[in-house]
Amino acid sequence: MEEPGRRRSVRLEDIAQRVGVSRSEVSRVLNNRLREGRSVGVEKQQHIRRVAQELGYQPNKAAQNLAQGRTDTIGLVVEPGGDYELSPHYHEIIGALTGTLSEFGLQLLLHSWKDNAADSLAQLARARSCDLLVLTDMRTDDPRPALLRAMNQPFVIRGTALEPESLAVGMDNHAVGKLAVEYLAGWGHRRIFFQNIGRDFRAGEGRYQGYLDACRGLGLEQSARYEDRVWGEEGLYAYTRSLFTQPDPPTAIFASDELGALGVLRALSDLGKRVPEDVSVLTCLNARFMRRILPTTTTILVRQHEVAAEVGRTVGRLLSGEPVERKQYYLSPLLEERGSCAPPAA
């Protein structure tokens, strides 16, 4: 029974009765599911929308989504590390995506996989619980895009795509690798140690190619050193110490992320090496909160928050029906100088 004094919400039947058409026809017009050659004409469609507005009709979002096959949910597919830990850059990605998607009335679902990406992703796609999936941390032989295409599951890549027909938004990692070498060489360094994320990642391969191009252009092929099999704070701590037991140790070190840079700085401190007087240190800033931990370390900003926000806007426009060209979009890295680099010691 309707409560006294409480206004009943306007139903599709009310609009249908006022206009003189069926309830189903009103539903099709208001949900933009018109049948070519079988729906009411343009004037009647306009009449339906006008009456709906006059009566103050508010669509039931859940019912509308059910009718349209929509969930208004976007899935972010992540790969956790040991003990299901997420790297600092996910802090930026999740925050930016959640905020940007909410502006389009969309919500974010976090989906993680541990052992078998293909099986986990196929299960998610079959459930049809997401309108679109966002893939991140792309591998050089990543099977996920082909799998999702075969299952007719829409997706957008946060990173570098494997194929030109994929829609992707990412950081120009070739530019990151090139900038790191050129910046340190600009201070006069030739014995540069470049630590990279694994080349099995598209980002790592991009940085490696940028590193090679810079070394060739500057004649550093023999003096620069490269490594991508060591990572993390403890890994870089031990490796940095080992570098200074060898002839011609580096005068400048590039660490691929903040945790690696912490290991480098600890090792140099334990070795009695001053930064930047004895050794210059450069790293990438993936998470903005890490500035508090590395306040005086010069960084290359890979703009994780901005990349993820642009992914969110792209997804929102796509699901709103706006035309979006399916191609690779890149943001460029930015350099933030904070005093950890200087000319090599005489």
Rank of each mutant, 00 (worst) to 15 (best):
E54T: 04
E25V: 12
V29F: 03
E25A: 15
A62F: 02
R33K: 13
A62I: 02
G37D: 10
G56C: 10
E43F: 06
L34D: 00
R33W: 04
K61N: 00
K61L: 08
Q45L: 07
S22T: 15
R28T: 11
E54R: 11
K61C: 00
K44W: 02
K61M: 01
G56K: 12
G56D: 12
V40H: 08
A52F: 05
Q53L: 09
A52T: 04
P59F: 06
R33G: 06
E25L: 13
R35T: 06
A52E: 07
E54L: 09
P59N: 00
E54A: 07
L30D: 09
R50C: 08
G37K: 11
V26I: 10
L34R: 11
V51T: 12
V42R: 14
N60R: 04
R35Y: 04
E36L: 14
K61R: 04
R49V: 10
N32H: 07
N60H: 04
P59I: 01
R49T: 03
E43M: 12
R28P: 05
Y57V: 11
G56E: 07
R33C: 10
R50S: 10
R28A: 09
A62S: 01
Q53D: 10
R23Y: 14
Q46E: 15
R23M: 15
K44Y: 03
S27I: 04
A62H: 00
K44R: 13
L30C: 03
E54V: 05
L30E: 06
E25H: 03
S39L: 02
A62E: 02
Q64K: 02
H47C: 10
N60V: 01
H47P: 04
R49L: 09
V42W: 08
V42E: 14
R50Y: 05
R33P: 00
R28L: 11
V51K: 11
S27R: 12
L34M: 09
S39P: 12
Q46L: 13
L55R: 01
R38V: 14
E25G: 07
A63N: 01
V40R: 07
R38L: 08
Q58W: 05
S22R: 14
Q64T: 07
E36R: 14
G56V: 10
A63E: 01
R49C: 03
R28H: 13
A52Y: 02
Q45D: 08
V29S: 08
Q64Y: 01
V29W: 02
Q64M: 01
N60Y: 05
S24K: 12
L30Q: 05
K44M: 14
G41K: 08
N60L: 01
K61E: 04
L55Q: 09
N60M: 00
V42N: 11
I48D: 03
S24F: 15
E43Y: 05
R28F: 08
R49N: 02
S27F: 02
A62T: 04
S24I: 15
A62C: 00
R49E: 14
S22G: 15
A52V: 07
Q45N: 12
G37Y: 04
